[in-house]
């Protein structure tokens, strides 16, 4: 199966399958993940092939799902938990923050939490309330969790496997509006990943300004960079991939090169990943900066009804507007 071009959803599915093939301790659990294959079909076919002891349709209770996954992890399993939508992770927040994140440290390193919590995230699909949130900052803020986000099919395929192999708990954000877009790159399923799980990717090299982004915004930023190219501006696009830890060397060496940075995410900007990155960049790159670090994100209101979302979410135009503002300095 070398050289297949999969959608992001199919990339995840193939990655999960591979991880389950490799390690019998990998179990999937969540609402509707079995026969239905999940509401986004990410686990499609896996219960049929691996059995309902390894792909578990759980009761409808997120705290229960994550809490029992903790117990399974203590017993030597590697649970991969699916939260059906971003806005439904909160019943599990207590388990994640109080137990999953802290277990290794509070046991003085005796216990491990090799768990992956998959969360379809972000907006842009015209959904009702609670189905479009970008809540990664809550988790990135929580010490003890690793937080990553894939932006394309190939990364989805490799990153989900790397996350499952990690002995720390990983919160894995999947950009739901990109699930069914066809992948740009071919995946060599027999090969190996070109980056470590916590490495950022230079998605497009450039010299004039650095766009820092992740998840669903990577595509938007690449489009913005293409548009800017026509105006003679050569933007660098960095797909962060890992939100905790942050790949600061990749970020700062890019900004030192370009002298300008715009951070783009769907999440509200107040106390966001953008805030953290801006703080780090000004600490590390102060004398290289030609302009203040700018942020483009969701407005600081709860995710609005879907008729507003096109204007709420960062768009190519809003990214270019920020680029203009940076160059105006």
């Amino acid at each position: 199966m070398s050289g297949t071009r999969l959608s992001l959803a199919k990339g995840l599915n193939a990655g999960l399958r591979k991880a389950m093939d490799k390690d019998p301790k990998v179990v999937l659990m969540g609402e509707d993940v079995g026969k239905l294959g999940g509401v986004f079909r990410i686990t499609e076919g896996l219960q049929k092939d691996f059995g309902d002891h390894r792909v578990i349709d759980t009761p409808l209770a997120e705290s229960g799902i994550v809490g029992t996954a903790v117990g399974l992890a203590l017993r030597g399993y590697r649970p991969v938990v699916e939260i059906q939508f971003d806005g439904f992770v909160y019943p599990a927040f207590d388990q994640i923050v109080s137990q999953v994140a802290k277990m290794h440290a509070r046991s003085l390193g005796h216990l491990k939490m090799p768990m992956v919590i998959r969360i379809p995230c972000g907006g842009g699909i015209g959904a009702v309330e609670h189905h479009s949130e970008s809540n990664e900052a809550y988790f990135a803020h929580t010490a003890g969790l690793r937080v990553v986000s894939c932006s394309n099919a190939a990364d989805a395929y490799w990153m989900i496997q790397q996350a499952i192999e990690t002995d720390d708990p990983v919160v894995f954000f999947e950009p739901k509006r990109r699930y069914h877009e066809r992948g740009e790159t071919e995946i060599d399923e027999g090969g190996s990943p070109d980056l470590g799980l916590y490495d950022a990717r230079v998605a497009k090299e450039g010299s004039d300004l650095t766009l820092l982004c992740y998840g669903p915004m990577v595509k938007t930023c690449l489009q913005a960079a293409a548009a800017a190219q026509e105006e003679g501006r050569n933007l660098e696009v960095i797909d962060l991939r890992s939100l905790s830890p942050l790949d600061l060397p990749t970020i700062t060496s890019s900004v030192k090169k370009t002298g300008r940075a715009v951070i783009v995410h769907e999440a509200q900007t107040f106390v966001s990943l953008g805030a953290e990155i801006a703080a780090r960049v000004q600490e590390e790159c102060f004398y290289h900066l030609e302009a203040p670090v700018l942020r483009v994100g969701g407005y600081n209101i709860p995710y609005p009804p879907s008729r507003f979302e096109e204007e709420y979410l960062p768009t190519l135009d809003r990214v270019l507007d920020a680029v203009d503002r940076s160059f105006a300095h």
Partner: peptide
């Protein structure tokens, strides 16, 4: 229809008919 059309998150005043807004988060 408002919330399912995406124009609001629940278009009625709960206290008018003592019927609370729809709640999507189960429970």
């Amino acid at each position: 229809f408002g919330m399912f059309r995406g124009v609001n998150h629940g278009g009625w005043d709960s206290n008018e008919n003592n019927f609370h807004l729809y709640t999507i988060v189960i429970g």
